[in-house]
C-alpha cells in the first residue's frame, strides 16, 4: 500500500469529503423542519429562524434578507450561491476539490459528485420539497458509499473518512442544538405531545428513529440526546464519529511529522474519552447547549491539528542544488 501522499491532495480529499457530508447534513437539517410542518395539527407553528441561528450565518442572512418565512430561509440554505454554507455551495466546493484530485479518487466517485453538482445547478426554488431533500441526501450518501466500496483502505480513503467523521460529529451536534433553540420560546411544551413530535422528527432527520427504538423504546428527551451524543454503535452519534476518526488517525500517524501528530492524538484522545465516560445526566445538568458549544470548539482545534500534522508544507533545507545558501523558497503555511 502506498504510504505517502501529497499534502495538497490529502487536504483536498479531506475537504471534498467534509463538504459532501456538509451538504448531506444540510439537507437533513432542512428536512427536519419540513417534516415538522406536516404535523401542524398539534398546534405547533413551524419556525425557520432557528435554522439560521444554529448554522452561524445570521449576520450574513440579515444583510440580504428581511424575513424568516419558509421560502426565503429554504432558498438561502439550499440554492444561494452567495451563502458559502448553502447546499449548492457545499456541493460545488466538494466537486471542485474532487476535480483537483481526480487522479487519486476513483472514476465512480467523481461521476457521482459531478452528477450531484449538476442536479443542484439545475434546481430552482420551486423544486424545494421533501422529496428534493431526500434526493440530495441519498445522492450524498451514495457518494460516501462509493468512496467506501471502490477505494482501497489506503491514505486517500483514510483522509476522506477522517474528514467525513469530523464533519458529521459537528453536524450531529448542531442538529441537536436546533432542538435547544426550538424549545426556547415555549418552555411550557416540555414533555408534551408537541415535544415528543419534535424529538421524533429530530431522530428521523438523523435516520436514527429505528435504531433508537430498538435500543430505548419510547421517546424520552434525555435518552434521545444521549443516543445522538454518546451511543458507541450508532453511525451518526458524536461518540461513534470520534471513535472512527481515531481509527483513521491510527492508520495515518506515521512519518516525519511526529510533534504535530502527537498533539493531534492528544487533543482527539481527550475529547473521545469525555464522550466515552460522560453520562447524559451530567451533560444536561451542566447545560446541553454549553456542552455542545464547547464540543464544537474542540472539534475545530482537532481540525487545526490535522492541518498541522499532515497538510502544512515543510520548508526546504537552506541550500539548493547549486549550493546557494540564499533564497531558500519559503512556502506559505
Amino acid at each position: 500500500m502506498n504510504r505517502t501522499m501529497l499534502s495538497r491532495v490529502a487536504n483536498a480529499i479531506y475537504w471534498m469529503s467534509r463538504y459532501a457530508e456538509r451538504a448531506e447534513n444540510a439537507a437533513r437539517f432542512v428536512d427536519v423542519n419540513l417534516q415538522l410542518t406536516l404535523d401542524r395539527s398539534v398546534g405547533l407553528e413551524p419556525q425557520w429562524r432557528p435554522l439560521i441561528d444554529v448554522s452561524g450565518d445570521l449576520e450574513a442572512y440579515e444583510q440580504r434578507r428581511d424575513n424568516f418565512d419558509r421560502d426565503t430561509v429554504l432558498e438561502f440554505l439550499t440554492l444561494d450561491a452567495d451563502n458559502p454554507n448553502s447546499i449548492l455551495s457545499s456541493v460545488a466546493v466538494a466537486r471542485e476539490n474532487a476535480r483537483t484530485v481526480r487522479e487519486t479518487i476513483t472514476a465512480e466517485m467523481w461521476e457521482q459528485i459531478n452528477s450531484l453538482y449538476h442536479l443542484m445547478r439545475r434546481s430552482t426554488p420551486a423544486d424545494l420539497d421533501h422529496l428534493f431533500f431526500q434526493r440530495i441526501k441519498r445522492s450524498a450518501m451514495l457518494f460516501a458509499a462509493i468512496a467506501d466500496n471502490s477505494q482501497s483502505r489506503g491514505l486517500a480513503w483514510s483522509f476522506g473518512h477522517l474528514g467525513r467523521m469530523i464533519e458529521r460529529a459537528d453536524k450531529t451536534s448542531r442538529i441537536l442544538d436546533v432542538k435547544y433553540y426550538l424549545l426556547l420560546p415555549s418552555a411550557e411544551d416540555v414533555g408534551t405531545n408537541v415535544d415528543t413530535i419534535q424529538w421524533r422528527a429530530l431522530l428521523h432527520s438523523t435516520d436514527a428513529l429505528e435504531m433508537y427504538r430498538q435500543q430505548h423504546g419510547t421517546i424520552a428527551p434525555g435518552r434521545v440526546a444521549g443516543f445522538l451524543m454518546l451511543d458507541r454503535a450508532f453511525p451518526r452519534s458524536m461518540a461513534f464519529c470520534l471513535d472512527r476518526a481515531g481509527r483513521c488517525l491510527d492508520d495515518l500517524a506515521t512519518g516525519d511529522r511526529r510533534h504535530a501528530t502527537a498533539r493531534l492524538r492528544r487533543q482527539h484522545g481527550r475529547l473521545q474519552s469525555e464522550l466515552r465516560y460522560h453520562t447524559i445526566d451530567e451533560i444536561i445538568t451542566g447545560g446541553l447547549h454549553e456542552y455542545i458549544d464547547s464540543f464544537q470548539q474542540r472539534l475545530n482545534a482537532i481540525d487545526d491539528a490535522v492541518h498541522d500534522a499532515f497538510f502544512r508544507p515543510i520548508n526546504a533545507e537552506p541550500t539548493d542544488a547549486a549550493g546557494n545558501p540564499d533564497a531558500a523558497p519559503q512556502l506559505q503555511a
Partner: peptide
Amino acid sequence: AQQMGVPLVQGSDLIVDDGYVKMQTTSGL
C-alpha cells in the same frame, strides 16, 4: 496521472531540498 497511477503535482507541491527535487507529502518530503 490516474491512468499511470502516479501523483499529479503542481509547482507548489515540489521543493528543491538537499540537492534533489522532493514533494510535500503527509509524512514529510
